[in-house]
């Protein structure tokens, strides 16, 4: 067993961890479709899917069977290459972002020193999924949905970045693991409350979740940018959206609520509890809030959230400078 050197063992452990995290992200994203429908039913005082299996728990299997056996149809007028590429970008860019999330002290895929910026880069690339889907479908509803989606995502990404700069300034690093350890005394939710509010809003908007689901508004656009998609390609958009929800929830838990830290319970339980709480919050938003008008969404982002994040950043910087020990 001469090849079983410590480096080889470390590499194998890292690869296995990465695969487990990848599978967990995909499976939790897929399971969320069922969980969300049950919770929506519960909160809106109706049943939700409850026929397939005990309490409807096999609904996901039924949906997947349907999706796999549906005809994977590409419209004849579509741009085939880009039409196929769009759902791949939708799912891959968000899955890659899971790389930077530290799950427990020993678990996590990559410990990048530009960690948080990597997430912004992937969120930026994610816009192309919607744009290309809308363009390649050659359908006016898809085009309108894609235009709305890209405008909305671009505007909300601007202050999503700014809302997290307060957190970065307080920790003094973009590294996610260091941001978690910097919250040992106090979770960021208290000093960075406005940063948290704006990041939550931006996170909902960037994942196109209700109430910011303008791009796929059923009443006006009859599903928006993925109107021409069917079968597994549509499934990738669908799962991609839920992976986005899980990702944003995990990011909120890591950046504002101390990540894996917490008393009594083991770290992994704390991380899952916090992430699960924010996933529930996403579903509750969808259950409770109506969809605002498109121009209101845009002006809310630019005229309210962007100034708020700028002021938050300025105040955070001033407080850090005041508290910093005088140098030189």
């Amino acid at each position: 067993m001469s090849w079983l050197t410590p480096t080889v063992i470390d590499t194998v452990i890292a690869v296995v961890q990465a695969i487990v995290i990848l599978l967990a992200a995909v499976v939790s994203g897929a399971l969320l479709s069922f969980v969300e429908r049950r919770l929506l039913g519960w909160w809106q005082d109706r049943y939700g899917p409850n026929r397939v299996g005990p309490f409807g728990s096999l609904q996901l299997a039924a949906d997947m069977l349907k999706m796999f056996f549906k005809e994977d149809w590409i419209p004849v007028f579509a741009d085939r290459k880009i039409f196929t590429l769009a759902p791949v970008i939708a799912m891959a860019s968000l899955l890659l972002s899971f790389m930077i999330i530290p799950i427990t002290p020993g678990w996590g895929v990559a410990d990048l020193n530009v960690g948080l910026l990597f997430f912004f880069a992937m969120a930026g690339v994610n816009v192309y999924a919607v744009l290309f889907a809308g363009y390649a479908s050659a359908n006016k509803y898809a085009l309108l949905g894609a235009l709305r989606a890209s405008a909305q995502t671009l505007s909300y990404e601007v202050f999503m970045g700014l809302s997290l700069m307060g957190v970065v300034a307080m920790a003094g690093t973009f590294n996610m693991r260091d941001i978690v350890t910097a919250q040992a005394d106090m979770w960021n939710i208290i000093p960075q409350f406005f940063g948290f509010c704006t990041f939550l809003i931006a996170g909902v908007a960037v994942t196109h979740r209700s109430p910011f689901d303008q791009p796929e508004a059923e009443q006006e656009l009859s599903d928006g940018y993925h109107i021409e998609y069917s079968g597994m390609k549509w499934g990738m958009f669908f799962v991609g959206e839920y992976i986005g929800v899980v990702l944003i929830s995990a990011l909120i838990a890591t950046l504002f609520f101390g990540g894996w830290t917490g008393p009594w319970l083991p770290p992994i339980v704390w991380f899952l509890l916090k992430t699960g709480f924010f996933i529930m919050l996403f579903v509750l938003f969808r259950a409770a809030l109506p969809r605002p008008r498109y121009d209101r969404v845009m002006s809310f982002g630019w005229k309210f959230c962007l100034p708020l994040t700028l002021i938050n950043l300025l105040v955070t910087g001033a407080v850090i400078l005041l508290n910093a020990p005088a140098t030189s």
Partner: peptide, 15 residues
């Protein structure tokens, strides 16, 4: 480079 060029400027081009 990815955030500014690929994520913002090129989106406007495609737009």
């Amino acid at each position: 480079e990815i955030i500014v060029y690929a994520g913002a400027i090129m989106v406007l081009f495609v737009f």
